[in-house]
């Protein structure tokens, strides 16, 4: 691992895979096929895109004009805010993988994660200029902002669908069906997680109260 960090090829490969995200978002069908099948993407680049997305999201809080985004600072928890992206992403990857492996999906979990992260590229690409734009428009021109920020989300959504088509080698209708099914899988996961945490806390509470009882009796 450390040895590979010293080699120059590691960095050129990393930069090439990162740059490949730009090709992916403009040629989604071709791009997402090559992403996994031709190994033109890397997990490192996917992580970078995710981190950039998170940074952009936090930057929006600070720098977007108050006309579009008024932030009630006392209620902001930056970790919850980060989790609001990372947690659904993790749930989606796991839920989607769990379902598609049962139904002939060719994608593996790292591949699903990588493709989803690559699909989030337009979000950062559009939202960064939007932060600047928000500071030079008035309320009358707010539609521009609204349309562009909506566009970034639609683009990301379409890219995720395209990515799933290519990674799992599904037809379009099957992909859409499994995207919807993934949402239910995510709900099931949330339910299980809740159950798990409440069980664990109950279990801990049981031992804590037992220990207390013993201490009282001694």
């Amino acid at each position: 691992m450390l040895a590979s960090l010293k080699k120059k090829e590691t960095y050129t490969h990393y930069l090439a895979t990162l740059k490949y995200s730009l090709y992916c978002i403009t040629h989604p069908m071709d791009g997402f096929w090559d992403l996994t099948h031709e190994k033109r993407g890397s997990i490192a680049a996917a992580n970078t895109i995710l981190i950039i997305t998170l940074i952009v999201r936090i930057a929006q809080l600070y720098f977007t004009s108050f006309i579009f985004n008024t932030v009630y600072w006392p209620e902001i928890n930056i970790f919850l805010y980060i989790a609001s992206i990372v947690f659904p992403l993790a749930l989606f990857c796991v839920g989607n993988w769990g379902l598609t492996t049962l139904f002939d999906g060719k994608g593996r979990l790292p591949q699903i994660y990588m493709a989803t992260c690559y699909a989030m590229t337009p979000y950062a690409l559009i939202r960064v200029p939007l932060i600047f734009l928000s500071n030079v428009v008035t309320v009358d021109e707010a539609e521009f902002y609204g349309v562009l920020s909506g566009l970034s989300l639609v683009w990301v959504a379409l890219l995720i669908v395209a990515a799933m088509i290519q990674i799992h080698e599904y037809s379009v209708s099957k992909t859409v069906l499994f995207m919807i099914a993934s949402v239910f899988a995510m709900l099931v996961l949330v339910f299980i997680l809740l159950l798990f945490f409440s069980m664990v806390s109950q279990g801990i509470a049981y031992f804590v109260s037992m220990a207390r009882e013993i201490m009282f009796r001694l």
Partner: peptide, 15 residues
């Protein structure tokens, strides 16, 4: 005080 309308009026002139 988050007065977007008046802010925009002022900003339009400033811009």
């Amino acid at each position: 005080k988050f007065d977007a309308d008046n802010y925009s009026k002022a900003f339009k002139q400033y811009r």
